[in-house]
Design a protein around this nucleic acid. Structure first.
Lengths: 192, 192
DNA sequence: GGGCAATCTTGTCAGTGTCAAGTTGTGGAA
DNA sequence: TTCCACAACTTGACACTGACAAGATTGCCC
């Protein structure tokens, strides 16, 4: 409480956009996107009920901004992967560390599909994933490279999704989910 | 329009529960669970705004009923699978034929987790999936049978989810999604 | 210093979920 | 057949929400 929160709330928040985003991520991680309320976010940030709309236009705009940010973060971490298995592990780790982003990114009915930031960020992530797939030597990925990518993505996405939904609690147990996924990825591509 | 829809709407709808469920499935398939409104469903069924609540208690109750129905349907089709690959294909087909059920089934924050019907239906589906996994000969499923099940489920679930989100439109193209998945499943378990 | 645009507030409207209380119809017991 | 208890549905109300319009405040740039 050194620099932030002056005694009397000033007219200008300072970084309301970020504050609303962060609060929204908290709420979504706890209650899902359906638990999100712009007015609640406004209260949390200590501003009037209509203030958030000025930064995000509307609820869809806020969720679209979250999805775009998520795709950017995902693209960044996938781009650093050393091979496809590592990319999968990073995908799973991303879902665990950014569950709110992850949920919103794959809920198209909540997003403004035409949005430019969203489109470019998603393209970036797709590109990073494609790079990880093409790094696999041809003999290790079967006849169709396109399908190898779909298989890897499906496995990672399914594992991450089921994990976040607590559908794998029993099977994963005390182990680190990323390590479990490493085994699954080994099943899909013989060499690794 | 032979037996249904009498000219003057009678006080008792006849099968309001089913009518609301069906309408809800339509709405969810089109706009997702967030587009669902009890009052809208009531209007579609031609009843007063509070009538649906009498059958489902509240919004959560309606969605829970849908999820339970979904798990029942899924369990039934998985139970008929001849092997694990077929079970995966049926999983994908279920997601395509019942997209609304599928979405709701795996949105835990929208459901009443304690619900008895939900719990039993989900257990039934889990049991059916376990049966399909245990039908695979030990040499074909790797060291850990539990993980083989997780791998199969993750692959099918991820593929189905990405498919419904239109994330695989380019990769799948004109092919039947079930056939594409058959190839993916072949990558995961060498023999098939 | 003056104006201007971004930021935030206030007020309002239609729509929603949920609850409480009343109304209507149905099926089963007497 | 009559009647009554219960299920199905209606009506009315309240608090909450997203969205919009119009006004107030403030920092910034010329």
């Amino acid at each position: 409480m050194s620099t932030t929160k002056p005694t009397k709330s000033p007219y200008h928040h300072g970084d309301l956009r970020r504050a609303v985003l962060t609060a929204a991520l908290d709420v979504i991680a706890a209650d899902g996107p359906s638990g999100l309320s712009l007015r609640d976010l406004a209260r949390r940030a200590g501003v009037s009920h209509a203030a958030p709309a000025h930064h995000f236009k509307d609820r869809t705009g806020l969720l679209t901004a979250i999805a775009a940010e998520g795709f950017g973060l995902l693209a960044a971490t996938i781009a650093e992967a050393v091979d496809l298995k590592d990319a999968g592990v990073r995908y799973v780790r991303f879902a665990r560390e950014h569950p709110a982003h992850f949920q919103v990114m794959f809920a198209p009915e909540l997003l403004r599909e035409g949005d430019l930031e969203l489109t470019t960020a998603r393209a970036l992530a797709s590109e990073a994933l494609g790079g990880a797939v093409s790094a696999v030597p041809p003999e290790g990925r079967g006849p169709d490279a396109r399908l190898a990518g779909v298989a890897a993505w499906s496995l990672a996405h399914g594992f991450a999704t089921l994990l976040l939904g607590h559908n794998l609690d029993g099977a994963v147990g005390e182990r680190e989910p990323e390590e479990v996924f490493r085994v699954l990825a080994g099943m899909l591509f013989r060499s690794g």
